[in-house]
Design a protein around this nucleic acid. Sequence first.
DNA 1: CGCGTAATTGAAAAGTATCAACACTGGTGG
DNA 2: CCACCAGTGTTGATACTTTTCAATTACGCG
Lengths: 191, 191
Amino acid sequence: MIRINKELLQYITELRSRREDCIIAEKYDPGEQVIGQEKRVLSVHIVKKGIVKCYLTEDNGKDFIQEFFGEGEIFGEIEVLNGTLSFCAVEAITGTDIYRIPREQFNLLLQNDKKFNTLILKALATKIRYTGLRHSYHQSHAIEDNFLRLKAQFPRLTGVISKRDIANYLGITQRSLNRVISELQQKDLPG
Amino acid sequence: MIRINKELLQYITELRSRREDCIIAEKYDPGEQVIGQEKRVLSVHIVKKGIVKCYLTEDNGKDFIQEFFGEGEIFGEIEVLNGTLSFCAVEAITGTDIYRIPREQFNLLLQNDKKFNTLILKALATKIRYTGLRHSYHQSHAIEDNFLRLKAQFPRLTGVISKRDIANYLGITQRSLNRVISELQQKDLPG
DNA sequence: CGCGTAATTGAAAAGTATCAACACTGGTGG
DNA sequence: CCACCAGTGTTGATACTTTTCAATTACGCG
């Protein structure tokens, strides 16, 4: 669930070594916002190191976490491609290094660099596939299943991500998350 | 919620008038499957006319409908781009006309036709945005809100789409859907 | 008419949220 | 060194929502 894209990160790193001018490196502290919700997005961002969360605050005040992004994951590209305002906010969870590509450069790369173009197409396709599968699983399974699936994908989960974020990722309350966890412990320890 | 993409449809139509060999027209009857789940996908498909549903059968037997596609919407492109098996099945709801582009042709077009490339990038970005917003809204709102939102987006809803499909789209049971509908009628008629 | 599929409904059971109180932690300033 | 604070996590009781199950009705079509 903390997705990564090594191929893209490697290519971006190479690109940067050749053309330092068009890819900017930045650092963010935990809790710092990279992109705000409903803002104009002027750059595409790629995680070099660390973890960020991409989340959305609904009109009723509830937060929903779309995804956790790790190394090589890209964000802001949707908004740059379609010229829309950001529909998610993105915030650093750990200390995070980001590569930023201004949208003009991003568009030029898409036009002139076939490999880059392909990598972006694949990254978009992977995002759709991933979120589609996740959405479907969520709607069709109980909380316990969803939590177990999450833990299977990322065992260190509870060490890195706060309970609140886990609950918001699963679309449930913290109370429900806690109940499921303690029920699982009940099952495990005695058996 | 029945998404369309007129720009893409128009471009595909033009393409076909120039190069009839690489874009194949097909017809599907209601209920007929265009793509099966977990199958190899050898072509990209674009809806010329009609409505299809893109759905996923989970291991517990529950169906979840990812999207309804109308004119100009594309599917199968995720699998062709990433070389994965189909994660959704696609089935005609109405009688449907489809344009089919074999994957070799699709890849050539992506490489050699800048406008096509851009249209696909935008279509992918729109898909991500749309499904992300939907997923978030679903998780954060009550069934009634979700149903009303759906009806606002597509008022003819209940005439075209079966109750079972609506329930599967919303990720709820038919029983719950019926209760919400009758409760809404209770509210409307007396007031 | 008779069949199969889709839609409807009630009652009971299961699941989840809400609310409110309390515990733990690390950092800050007196 | 302690008191305090804010943020995070924990827990129980209760109310509400949704599913499950089963029975029944409505509809389209050969």
